[in-house]
Design a protein around this nucleic acid. Structure first.
Lengths: 341, 341
DNA sequence: CATGGATACTAATACGTATTAGCGATCGAA
DNA sequence: TTCGATCGCTAATACGTATTAGTATCCATG
């Protein structure tokens, strides 16, 4: 029982200004269509009354009547203000907030989403999804069933990161990993590398698949281009494998793995990039201490955040035609870990 | 025009289950009062229909009718995901999010609040404040006029950080700066310091006033306890002043100033804490590079965030009686910058 | 003076839920 | 048989806004 002492409504304004509630609404919304006209003096009177009372429209009623709110939902599959992967997701949120502010939108964080079967769920009893005009989905892995449902319900949304179809194409703003990895491969080939290896981590996420695809497509000119799975394999075992096969450059999906690999190499008295080049394929997802500047690329996270809001706004107001899918270029980083074989 | 294809409503459920809309609502809300009864078989039928259709209550309509939402507004006088002072405000948000998740609440970030006269405003045309059940105010300086208005409107809110009265007492969860500074003064006195100086920054914020109060109250046993204002004064000028007066320990409000002062001291060939002890009064508000471990105290930011949501929840549901004001203890940090005079 | 067309509004309704007063049916007791 | 009492539910209404159809008034024109 919030001690709400009857707030000011349009009806109050109407009574004070001697007009109807409808007129107040029309004035507020600046309606000046052909079939709706308000005399200037009436308009002024209403506006003055509004100013005097400090009236502000009830966003709830507004939304119920007009089905539109200027509120953007943000669903994060990890905590929105995370401690662990904080540094990775923070830039996305930064961009989202920046554009939302510019667009005059508020952000609704669905922190109440419960974790079921080890994963946060959008659709739970009592979800507040529809309070927002649309929503942005953030997280490494997004549940396909939930995308299906969003598509089916026709609820406007945009995923941050490319997503496979889920009962229809999924609108997204992603990073062009395939191209970025391809460019790195090109760089390595140009330096004379011929025996490449790609170190997998994840096997399901789209971002992972895109990187692999880029690697495969670009490494046709190589003598050998192998895949290794780093899951549950120690850095030393991997290093053994690489050296045994005469690999000269490793493309490492997971940043932490790259750091561990470099450490293992150094422990054997070998050097990076003297004996082995190591390339990273994106920013660290967990904070990893390393004073080494890896060669690789950077994900345009902030820009992805910004553009996801931009795209969503277009979808909501109907100005966007068709399904919106954008891939932004990654930025190559020239570090110290790519040498000659 | 969001292509919303008519969502499922209680009326649809009612029609399918052969009951009235009111009955559906009653079942959903688990009402079993004396004057409202639903036969078990009816209840089951309704629940089954709900499950089949995947119905979820419209939070907007719910709020409009029931005036209560499980949404907590968060108003930040700085950007919520800031880059500059990010490290300072982040822990508050972390705590807020953590408790909100536990309480099953969503968070509404008022990113749309416009900047007027160099300050963000809660109350602007079209503010979405009332969408939330209550709100949390975060920021170094909070506009007193807006607090007045919140009080007048009876809108539930809690400030993070102690606030002076503004048209009535302000509910808050703050840090007990006075006690913390007092303890530091006690520490210095125990080490034999007798000539103390307090370096001011801000003159208006409550957090600043509290620190000063703690200093004054605790330093009665000192030979001299002076105030210096660091605004617009260079570190060298301050150092001159301190040395001229034979000051042996400086209590520095602003972290960056402490760093600058230490640097200036070292540049003169003097040492900290050999020639001058420097104590800090809280965490850095902007990232300052320093490899020195200052003696001072830490603000329980995360806990403040958590408890502010807890307090707000109590205010909203009416379980809290009277105005809620909490001061949490700060944690003393034994660093390397307090020596003997 | 009738007609038509602007002009300036208002009445009514929709949005989807929660709440409350009240109604018909059934049952037990007098 | 009648009079409550209880049970199980529904009708009606409120919440505060946006929208649309429609109405009353006025003015110009033929």
């Amino acid at each position: 029982m919030p001690a709400t002492p009857r707030r000011v409504t349009q009806r109050d304004i109407a009574r004070l200004a001697g007009v109807s509630q409808a007129t107040v609404s029309l004035v507020l919304n600046n309606r000046a269509d052909a079939d709706v006209r308000i005399a200037p003096e009436t308009r002024d009177r209403v506006l003055r009354t509004i100013a005097e009372t400090g009236y502000a429209a009830d966003p709830v009623a507004r939304r119920l009547a007009a089905r539109f709110n200027r509120i953007i939902g943000v669903f994060t599959y990890e905590p929105a203000f995370p401690s662990g992967s904080r540094d990775f997701f923070h830039p996305f949120l930064l961009g989202i907030e920046e554009y939302a502010e510019r667009a005059g939108c508020d952000l609704l964080l669905f922190t109440s989403a419960p974790v079921i079967d080890g994963r946060r769920r959008i659709f739970h009893q009592d979800n507040r999804l529809r309070l927002a005009d649309g929503c942005i989905l953030l997280g490494r892995e997004i549940d396909a069933a939930e995308l299906h449902r969003l598509n089916r319900d026709g609820f406007p949304y945009v995923a941050v990161g490319r997503r496979d179809d889920a009962g229809g194409p999924v609108p997204y703003v992603g990073a062009d990993y395939a191209t970025a990895v391809g460019e790195l491969v090109g760089l390595a080939l140009a330096r004379g590398h011929r025996r490449l290896a790609y170190l997998n981590t994840d096997l399901t996420a789209e971002s992972s698949a895109d990187r692999r695809r880029g690697f495969v497509a670009a490494s046709t000119a190589a003598e050998s281009a192998r895949h290794l799975t780093t899951v549950a394999a120690g850095a030393d075992a991997i290093l053994d494998d690489l050296l045994a096969e005469g690999t000269t450059v490793a493309f490492v999906e997971d940043f932490a793995t790259a750091v561990a690999l470099e450490l293992a190499t150094r422990r054997r008295g070998l050097s990076v990039p003297g004996d082995l080049s190591i390339l990273t394929l994106g920013d660290p997802t967990v904070p990893v201490p390393s004073d080494l500047a890896f060669t690789g690329f950077r994900i345009p996270r902030e820009e992805m955040g910004r553009q996801s809001v931009e795209v969503l706004a277009g979808v909501i107001d109907g100005s966007a035609v068709g399904v919106q899918q954008r891939l932004l270029p990654c930025q190559l980083v020239e570090g110290d870990t790519l040498g000659t074989p």
